[in-house]
Write a protein that binds this DNA or RNA. Structure first.
Lengths: 203, 203
DNA sequence: ATATCTATTGACGTATCGCCAATAAACCGC
DNA sequence: GCGGTTTATTGGCGATACGTCAATAGATAT
């Protein structure tokens, strides 16, 4: 008797999940959420559509998992906190690390920010906010400010908005060079911390 | 013979279109794009779904029409260019007008920015970019700068990003007051124009 | 009244998502 | 090796939403 040919390979959870996630990561960064069908992901993975729901529940949860993973990776590429540096050097380092991270993960970062219903989906907002806060905290740690207040944190979060749009000018519309964006972000950060944030605090 | 009761009122194009747009404006600002069905819009307007496609083609085109209209309205609420003001006063005025506009049209503005596939949809990007550029041009006009370069324009566009996220901190997460946001935006704008933009220019 | 125009309906085809019962691949005890 | 158990995987069903189009019927002019 010939050994019956298996109709499909049976993998264990982790392996299959990672396989699906690999495809999803790529596809979700290439196309907007609505233009990605679970059928397409299944096809490219070489499985049936139902399996995606078996592992991830809904399409949206799959997407959120992708975003979470990518964000975690961004956070993982954490800057080594340099010691014995002048204040300006620290700021420069900060900006350099940020721009490196942005360049490396641009497509995914923008994919998350551009995701459908961004401001409406609490879960998505939570994820991005978490990363933003983590970035802010790291900046605070590096900058060694005496007593960071809630207001300062808020101001630095708005700085993230500036950084995002500056990154877009650099990587998407290409109207600014990396050097220019660096200058912009570094100088603005200094101005924010030394002068503007205190002024906001007093308002 | 009794006069036959009309099964529907027949309106002319403009009237019906405006009627549909009125409903769409409201619904699209309340829910994310994907959660709005043309069926719901039709129901609330009191018409059949097909009519929406008859007038606007697709759901996305309807949405774009809504965004375009709202953006045009924002541009229409243009600040009267105040004359004979000190530089600081002009900046203050600028920020005040911006915050007024933001407060009035916050939900719609965010609806556009949070729209599905923002960075992927060229048409949507075009609309928002157009408004941003218009805002920048108006700032330039008000500020009466000698020779605005492309770089300066790019820097001011990134400032729009800062303004957006600052507005979110004020209106959405409520971690900053209007006064604080005002201080933040005014001071940053001054710093950008007088110091940072020239430095970026030299980079 | 009758004819013409076009706003409006209503139904059809297609795509996609979420769910779930049936299936079968792999593993375990014997 | 062999039957039993586990659970990864399939495949199909139902619901919902969008886009299209021929048929219908208000309104207006002749």
């Amino acid at each position: 008797m010939a050994t019956p040919v298996p109709r499909y390979r049976r993998l264990d959870r982790d392996e299959r999940q990672e396989q699906i996630l690999a495809v999803a990561r790529r596809v979700f960064t290439e196309l907007p959420y609505a233009d990605v069908s679970t059928a397409a992901i299944a096809r490219e993975t070489g499985i049936q559509r139902g399996l995606i729901h078996y592992y991830f529940g809904t399409k949206r949860e799959l997407f959120l998992t992708v975003v979470r993973d990518l964000m975690a990776q961004v956070a993982y590429d954490a800057p080594p906190i340099g010691d014995e540096l002048s204040s300006d050097e620290v700021v420069d380092l900060c900006v350099t690390l940020f721009l490196d991270a942005a360049e490396a993960n641009a497509s995914t970062w923008f994919a998350a920010l551009d995701a459908e219903g961004f401001g409406h989906d609490p879960e998505l907002v939570k994820i991005v906010t978490k990363i933003r806060d983590a970035t802010v905290e790291r900046m605070l740690a590096v900058l060694r400010l005496p007593a960071p207040t809630g207001t300062l944190r808020a101001v630095l979060r708005t700085y993230s908005g500036l950084a995002d749009s500056a990154t877009r000018e650099w990587l998407q519309t290409k109207t600014l060079t990396r050097t220019q964006v660096h200058t912009l972000l570094a100088r603005t950060l200094v101005a924010l911390i030394t002068e503007i944030a205190p002024a906001v605090e007093r308002s």
